[in-house]
Write a protein that binds this DNA or RNA. Structure first.
Length: 596
RNA sequence: GCCCCGGUAGCUCAGUUGGAUAGAGCAACUGCCUUCUAAGCAGUAGGUCAUGGGUUCGAAUCCCGUCCGGGGUACCA
């Protein structure tokens, strides 16, 4: 039951009867009444003045009067300037609660046999270094969007394209061969991805030193960058890899394996997962074939130096290289192959790429290329473009070591959560194991909420010293409210208070009504989050709801309320709020603790 | 140079298809725990919505110019 829909229809009818106006739905502007005025739903009457030919006040009066007579749930109205504030009967709000309480999956649409299938690509790491804060934003967004689409009744396949081949991993391989001394995760006790990342940094160190040395000998910088022994060594490894040299392939496999073991741990900590993983090493050749097919069919062209290009000037873009003059593939080549394989593997209705906004141009081009190659879904791909995470010191750069490592950050967060919980003495009654689990829940709740509550499009600033808070508009605040509710419900059960599932009508306080109104907005919020791919919409909704609940909690007693009907109503209200915020937060990948 | 994105309180961010007096949190200051969890609640203070025009009954929101910041820009990914 949707109050806006009811009123919309009634307003339409009223306009017709009063002014003979066939209004379309976007002409009718409904909004939630501002807190400072009496009422629940507000109709903006300015658009109708030219039909009523009266003042805003008179028009609003006229419509208000009509609605009062024609709509049951409208109990009263008032007019302020051109705004018609409608007061909705409290029994309507109670029906909303009744409905929400009776459905465990309130506001959530389950997928069906013939639901649309969305494939969400996210994470997409290179295998030469561990994950950092930028990847965290990517992973959390990708996971959350997947959950949100699921809640909107879509079938979802979460996928990851692992960039497991290329010059970057060869750099780590080269460094390991040269200076590794047989170091392994086992004999060093280091996490595999960190170990490989160490050699990537090691490579860069030597490479830079070599360039400096060459430049000192009078060679130009550009030349030096191409002649340094390290880069020649790495390129040689790449060549050998492509030629399937056994020893090189073996080393590549081994080091990638180390990285995957490390990634698995990080993914698990972040609570993200994938239904299907693609590897660049298995898709880039498919991409190459597609490009060559395009060349045969005259869609692309070859330059004198043997490189292959696409001309996108007609589409308002530039020329784009697809195969280098030495025949090797570029990033774009691989993405074409991956796309082809995915659509062969799944009946995809919507392909979503969760990739940073630095690649906006890349995906614009990809869409056109796929289209030219005859894939009818090419134009439909959606690049979910998110902004960069910046540090107070500026942009993160892997090679310069100015990154916030994902594993370090998570552990640091857990430490802060642990210390704070101990300081507050909150979890003393739990076993050490359960307490530890809760610390992690809180830590991840803080981190995830912090990242997901902001508009994904915008760059965001992360200050390791200050950004993570546990008070105010934060994940832990919402978790805390949930734990409070569970505590009340536990106490009710302990006192053998059973909840009567039918709500008795009675008086409603303002705070109680605010919460009911907010609950009624949940289904629409889930829908909006789905159509806008927006975890932030869900996060902000949960915060508003929880804030209102805490005000209610502060002002009203629940268990010691003498009026049994009221007590029952408040228990149902509490349970429903708990259920709704759990649903919402789960869409952000945030778990809710029973106690904290 | 050209293209794209952004600029809202000291800081981090909300702000629905253009609607009422632009909202939260943090930081600062003040109250509230013998009563269901004070990771809470209530209050004070804090604004030229970068800037100049335009459209409109009405603009943080739409259009144009300027300034500032970020990203991209033909053999990096």
């Amino acid at each position: 039951m949707n109050i806006d829909k009811i009123i919309l229809d009634a307003v339409k009818k009223a306009l017709n009867e009063l002014y003979k106006l066939e209004a379309n739905e976007n002409q009718i502007q409904l909004q939630n009444t501002r807190k400072d005025f009496e009422g629940d739903v507000t109709l903006v009457v300015f658009p109708f003045l030219r039909f009523s030919k009266k003042t805003p006040e008179a028009t609003a009066e006229e419509i208000g009067n009509h609605l009062l007579k024609s709509v049951d749930v409208i109990e009263n109205y008032n007019v302020i300037k051109g705004f018609l504030n409608l007061v909705i009967d409290k029994t309507f709000w109670l029906t909303v609660l009744q409905e929400a309480y009776s459905q465990e999956k309130y506001g959530i649409k389950l997928s069906e046999e013939n639901s649309e299938l969305a494939m969400i690509e996210y994470s997409s790491p290179n295998t030469n270094k561990p994950l950092h804060l930028g990847h965290i934003r990517n992973n959390l967004l990708g996971f959350s969007i997947s959950e949100i689409l699921k809640a909107n009744g879509k079938k979802v396949v979460k996928t990851n394209i692992v960039n497991d081949r290329g010059i970057h991993i060869c750099k780590s391989m080269y460094a390991w061969q040269m200076w590794g001394n047989g170091k392994t995760p086992e004999n060093s006790g280091m996490k595999g991805d960190h170990l490989v990342g160490e050699f990537y940094v090691e490579f860069d160190k030597h490479y830079k030193a070599e360039i400096a040395e060459l430049v000192q000998k009078g060679i130009s910088k550009e030349e030096a960058e191409n002649q340094a022994p390290s880069i020649l060594g790495a390129r040689e490894l790449l060549r050998k890899w492509e030629a399937k040299d056994e020893e090189t392939v073996q080393l590549w496999k081994t080091m990638n394996e180390w990285v995957y073991e490390g990634f698995d741990i990080t993914y698990k900590k972040l609570g993200v997962d994938f239904d299907k993983i693609y590897y660049e090493s298995e898709t880039y050749l498919v991409g190459k074939e597609e490009v060559l097919r395009g060349l045969d069919e005259g869609i692309f062209y070859r330059k004198d130096d043997n490189s292959v290009w696409a001309d996108l000037t007609k589409e308002g873009l530039d020329q784009k290289i697809l195969l280098r003059s030495d025949g090797t593939s570029v990033y774009m080549t691989q993405d074409i192959g991956t796309a082809k394989m995915r659509f062969a593997d799944f009946a995809i209705d919507k392909m979503v790429y969760v990739v940073g906004n630095e690649q906006n141009y890349h995906f614009q081009v990809l869409a056109h290329l796929l289209d030219k190659l005859g894939f009818e879904w090419g134009k439909d791909l959606y690049h979910f473009s998110y902004g960069m995470v910046e540090l107070p010191s500026g942009k993160m750069k892997s090679r310069e070591g100015t990154v916030v490592d994902a594993d370090d950050l998570v552990e640091e967060m857990v430490n802060v959560a642990r210390n704070m919980s101990k300081e507050l003495g909150k979890l003393d009654s739990l076993s050490a194991q359960e307490a530890e689990k809760t610390y992690r829940m809180i830590a991840m709740g803080a981190l995830k909420y912090f990242i997901l509550k902001v508009d994904p499009k915008k760059n965001m600033l992360f200050n390791p010293e200050e950004s993570i808070d546990f008070n105010g508009n934060t994940g832990p605040f919402i978790q805390y409210t949930f734990a409070r509710i569970q505590s009340v419900l536990r106490k009710a059960a302990d006192n053998t208070i059973t909840i009567d599932k039918t709500i008795q009508s009675g008086s409603l306080s303002d705070k109680e009504k605010d919460i009911l109104k907010r609950i009624s907005l949940f289904p629409g919020t889930v829908k909006e989050a789905g159509s806008n791919y927006s975890p932030a919409v869900i996060a902000n909704y949960c915060y508003e709801l929880v804030k209102e609940y805490n005000q209610f909690y502060h002002d009203h007693s629940i268990l010691s309320e003498p009026d049994m009907d009221k007590r029952n109503f408040r228990l149902i209200l509490s349970a429903t709020v708990g259920n709704v915020i759990k649903s919402g937060m789960n869409m952000l990948g945030i778990e809710m603790p029973e106690r904290m």
